[in-house]
Amino acid sequence: MENSVWIAILAAAITAGTPILFAALGEIITERAGVLNLGVEGMMLVGAVTGFMVAVKTASPWLGFLAALVAAGAMAAIFAVLTITLRANQVVTGLALTIFGTGLSGFLGKPYVGIPLPVSFKPVALPLLSQIPFIGPVFFRHDPLVYLSYILVPVLWYYFYRTRPGLNLRAVGENPAAADALGVNVFALRYIYVIIGGMLAGAGGAFLSLAYAPSWLENMTAGRGWIAVALVIFAVWDPVKALLGSYLFGGVDALTYSLQAATRIAIPSFFLKMLPYILTIIVLIVATRQTIVKHIGAPGALSIPYDREER
């Protein structure tokens, strides 16, 4: 294939990977604090619909984006109350949150189906950077939300591994009892990070409805929230690996169509459509093996509600 085709596929991979990246980063933060929130899909949908509704009303995609953060954060807050304060089962509550978010977003978004967005996020070619051959058109001709995700990855990495609050965050997820003994407020930190995680899932949803599609349709995330949850395991809770993983998934997603359009190789489209999910399974197998061999993996207290009295 020619160079231009590769550039097109790689650029498409980044666009398709960005909503997954936002959601996966959010889930990494949540899980690093020791909370497993399987409601990503639901929070993404609520973010997508709220962002869209506000953007239609105000004609400002940025206000829509902010509203998506707030709405998905509120969803995460419900989850936090149930699992952190009331110590409900995190898996069950997360599943309930996804079902709730799917229904709620469909209900709220009903009058907005099929309405065009007055102003959506538009690609902005960054000066100078976008002129670099090959790299420029692949990485630096996207919309502002993509650039935001670029910045978020190193920032989170630095926060996790190089700052004091980041250390506290990881401590809360690995051994909340020890963190508590050191005077870290486990409950408050878990609340904060669960809500921030939800906001990022909402950002992923808003990217779909305000930049990628841009429109609102019921259930438009189409399983991307679940891919994000799987990706967190693949990335061993590391933001940089999450970036690579998201673009890998995005690339496979983009490839399903590019292979059909650009080549004459007769690969059944059903098979291509299956690829991201096959990849998910392979990735999970590899990641699990890696975890066993290298003794790295899930935060120690993941999905275990913290109860002071059980210390």
Binding site: L208, L217, A222, A254, Y257, A261, A262
Partner: peptide
């Protein structure tokens, strides 16, 4: 006429992506 199958009736993101891949391929 180049054809790309999406295997969905109703997925705006997938349909848009399929269209972009056709545009990239010269349509």
């Amino acid at each position: 006429v180049k054809v790309v199958w999406t295997n969905t009736w109703y997925d705006p993101a997938a349909e848009k992506q399929a269209a972009l891949s056709l545009l990239d391929a010269g349509a």
